[in-house]
Design a protein around this nucleic acid. Structure first.
Lengths: 198, 198, 198, 198
DNA sequence: AATGAATGAGCCTTCATTCAT
DNA sequence: AATGAATGAAGGCTCATTCAT
């Protein structure tokens, strides 16, 4: 009788190894050997579990998406008003978990890959749509039909701060990024003299 | 420094071939053979002219920077007021020349590469600083000490729309991107008749 | 020698799976996984039963030989005269069972492998000797000392039709192959009413 | 100015290296490294010249075909009567050049590969058709409408002796093979008491 | 008995780079 | 100046085989 399958743990370990490798390297140009080595297994095993490099990278991208979604869902659950939800969505994108250097680097690398790979593009579109829909849903009660455009602006700001992170060296300054986005929201919402809504 | 015997037009042809290759491929993962082939020369010659792939890519990045700078300088020269300068800077970043798919793709690829390559990072920082300084310089007379933060926001918006372009398929919708940024500027400048929700 | 716990039907299933794989693939270049998969077991089990790929292939070759021998023995048992025996031997080699595409393909693959593998060569020599001996034994009463040479010719014809089968696409035309060999035999035996051109 | 291209010689050297490798190995299961090593070049160069392993192997098969055709054409040119042509064709197939162990081994390996690879099958069919056509053309004046069937028999005999060569160890005994085929021809032609026609 | 897990070895292929001409 | 020739290094992938359970 074979021992219970260890598949899920190994898969997860490999995905995390891939994430780290991509994060450190700042690009998808990582080798299966590197990834496998970080996970403490042979390159052949990575193929065994994922079928190929592309599949492993896609699984890694999915993992990123899923982590963001989970944190977003949790944050939304803790919010009771549309205004709170709005800030929660922004905050999640700059949380300690999501805005780690490795994670940001991976996001960018995947964005670039999306220009070439249809599966990646599809995946990132899912993320983009969800972000937009979350933002617009929270905005609608506050600004009505303008919700869509404002959601687009906020999404661009978020991604903009992500990409500009690539040029920075030290620790991430999430505070000022969040402050700028919150200020924008406050302006569009006609709020005055206060940008705090967390 | 190229030897006097090296024809500048050859260098330029190779750089443009590299740009096209990167643009089409959507990544720096292009081969010297591909680039050389597009320029109608042998890969060996590309080495002869640039010393190596990295140097050719760096020269290509410089080319991109220079083109943007030239168009910016020209646009600024046509502007007479700070407010006009502000819009001019934004407009240039979404001009037909700069926002071509190939160019956008190249920018993104270089951004990602900047996470790994110090020379690339240095180059992109020059661009980022110049953009920020141009924006802040135009903003200062209008908003005073807030100029820096607003410049940062505008820069993030610009780059944000660039990166989100990676997910789109069809023609670029520069109009709505510009509109959103202009709306943001108008808001921050307290201009009347803006697009705030009625 | 298989351990008593090893089920003979498992061995047989694996051998037949190997035969099918080789037949379909038209070469010995089949994987243990493929073979094991066809037999519905794990590759590890195939090793458990045979010790290694070479051993499994050798067992498969033996299986082929044995099947041919059995059919030959049965056919000879049904023959009462040397002349009948001669035709029976030829007929068996083009019987529906032996001349199946998969079987023919496997024979050829093994022939080629025999050039490299001593065990395979040994096995095929056994087959060749037996065929020759069967033919010569039947021929001796009919043609005397010429039996050996004629046996060689018939054997070459048989194998020749086998190898040429590799180039054909559709169903096997065994009839014409048998007719040609029978015609040759008739000629050598000086039988009247043969197919010699009028 | 680049030196005159060395391509043809290198190509030929690589093809011959491939032929030797296949001949020694008795199978197409040879590595590019092995082949390249025999030609005294790097594996990368073999790709440079042929594009891939399959292409090199196909070129090798073509080389085999061409060599046989050339020798056949020359032999036919030296023959003045149909009867002589017939013997010439047979003789060529067992000439010192064609019946070398390496060449025979390669033929067999290609036959087996033909079961899998459509390009190889196509090539071998060309050979088969040409052989049949040459034989039938020479036979027609001698036996009339029976030419086709007899040509088939002779072709089967030739290929049969080729494949049976795989089981032999020592030097090739071409004489007895040729004698048997010539005897068959003599019989079909109604000749008596003499099998010499070279 | 039987299996999934795991690996080492090897192969094909690509590519930046060098060199002789 | 320019090129084809040539290569070393590296990467993805496959597969027979072993092993713990």
């Amino acid at each position: 009788m074979p021992r219970p399958t260890m598949l899920p743990q190994r898969r997860k370990a490999l995905i995390e190894a891939a994430l780290n490798a991509i994060g450190e390297q700042g690009s998808l140009d990582v080798t299966m050997s590197d990834i496998a080595g970080r996970a403490g297994v042979s390159p052949a095993l990575a193929h065994h579990y994922f079928g190929g490099k592309d599949d492993l990278l896609e699984a890694t991208m999915r993992h990123l998406l899923q982590a963001l979604r989970q944190e977003t869902v949790a944050a939304l659950a803790r919010s009771s008003t549309p205004r709170e939800r709005l800030s929660a969505i922004v905050a999640v994108n700059f949380s300690a978990l999501q805005f780690r250097p490795a994670t940001v680097a991976a996001w960018l690398a995947f964005y670039v890959e999306a220009q070439r790979s249809t599966p990646m593009r599809r995946l990132l579109r899912v993320y983009a749509r969800r972000l937009h829909s979350n933002l617009a849903f929270a905005l609608r009660p506050l600004v009505g039909h303008e919700a869509g455009v404002i959601a687009e602006a906020i999404a661009a700001l978020i991604d903009g701060f992500y990409i500009r992170r690539a040029l920075k060296d030290g620790e991430a300054d999430t505070a000022s990024a969040v402050a700028i986005i919150e200020d924008y929201i406050a302006l569009k919402l006609g709020e005055v003299g206060d940008t705090r809504h967390a």
